[in-house]
Design a binder for these strands. Structure first.
Lengths: 221, 221
DNA sequence: TAAATAGGTGAAAGATGGGTGAAAATTCTT
DNA sequence: AAGAATTTTCACCCATCTTTCACCTATTTA
């Protein structure tokens, strides 16, 4: 098993590495969220141990970014008393979390549990329907009145994001950050163009994508 | 929640029943499509777990028949490798499907997902009410006696700000600074005009926006 | 009561924002 | 390497929104 350890403290990384390797795994290290994201783009890991508080890019944002392209189990490491939203953690797909200071043994036990669990993780085939618009996020399929709509990758991402946040007003900035990624530094109007394309592909159901003048867009049933 | 389990194998039915009841739901059983259709005519269920392959009347045909009169969420149970037309499943209104052999846990997760989805239609967004005035900040919606009020961006911003600070006296200067932005160097009376427009759009509920002579405005319940 | 002050109002000029199409840049295929 | 597909930028245009301002009415004060 290839395990990526992400923490800004060299000491913690080396302690974890020792135990991870002792159990017969390969350990890799990253000193902050940014580096973790970069490494995950280029390599495949079986599990990530991710600290919450780090310079440059915090653990949550990093996980969010990584989970966009790869579904890797994640265990968060947080300092005792560090307040964070567990529900939020669950939403972005964190599998478990450990509070510092932790015993390495405890971490190893969590690793065992998570990897065993994720192996039997079911694949979702959830189908969401809005009138004649059918959306299968897991299967990356969208049907317009029963006919498969051929969307580009960005269009799928954008639509899925809008649907996941249906009824909520989303600014262009938020869309760019969450759909395009924190590292996208481009024009706001990029969103407009993709919305245009998406609307074109949704035919009659373009009505679900509502423009909020002066703000952005939202998906509304 | 009343859940109807439809499968010709007694074993599968009882396993599912156990889990369904464990989660605090009422379980009902049918051994084939025909029986399921009959039961649905006479009773109301909140969800149906329907096997595809069954004697007398298969799952698809049964669902098609049931959906004619009642819109009940359906999760299909299909054997691995059983080939069937997913598009057809979409069309007749199947909400999700699970492949056998499945872990009961998996099925329960799907049930949760499907029911949560159909329940959370009112998006769970916080809607603040003042008599017949409903305000949904996340969704950028304002309803006056149930009718959507079409506000301009500034009007939304202004109203939301007033409501967030309800009961608090706000000077024109503070409103300009917080709603318009620190970099706005314009006339005080701009606020007046927007208040006017806002009041016009709130109809009877204009009364909530109180003028404080010599000071500014406040929102008061 | 008259004058002074503050807020309400309507109209009109000016600014802004978003849809759109096309072209440029990038990425993916062959 | 060339070609195709996709993403991104950008400028134009029009509808909408914002802001100002002059005038009016209401309230307060002298």
């Amino acid at each position: 098993m290839k395990i990526l350890i992400v923490d800004d403290e060299e000491m913690i990384r080396s302690v974890l590495r020792e135990y991870v390797e002792f159990e017969g795994n390969e350990a890799y290290e990253a000193a902050d969220g940014m580096e973790a994201v970069r490494l995950c783009r280029e390599n495949d890991y079986d599990l990530i141990l991710m600290d919450v508080m780090m310079p440059h890019l915090d653990g949550f944002s990093a996980v969010k970014e990584i989970k966009k392209s790869k579904d890797i189990p994640v265990i968060m490491l947080s300092a005792r008393g560090e307040e964070y939203d567990k529900l939020f953690a669950f939403e972005i797909g964190v599998d478990d979390y450990v509070t510092k200071p932790f015993s390495p043994k405890e971490v190893m036990a969590r690793i065992q549990a998570v990897t065993k669990r994720s192996k039997s993780k079911p694949v979702g085939n959830e189908i969401i329907k809005f009138e004649g618009l059918e959306i299968d996020m897991a299967g990356r399929n969208v049907y317009v009145d029963g006919v498969k709509a051929e969307l580009t990758p960005k269009e799928y991402e954008l639509l899925f994001y809008l649907v996941r946040n249906k009824g909520i007003a989303l600014t262009r900035e938020k869309l760019l950050y969450d759909v395009w990624g924190f590292d996208f530094y481009g024009d706001d109007r990029t969103v407009d163009t993709h919305i245009k394309m998406l609307r074109g592909n949704l035919k009659d159901y373009r009505k679900f994508i509502v423009t909020l003048r002066g703000l952005g867009y939202k998906f509304e049933e």
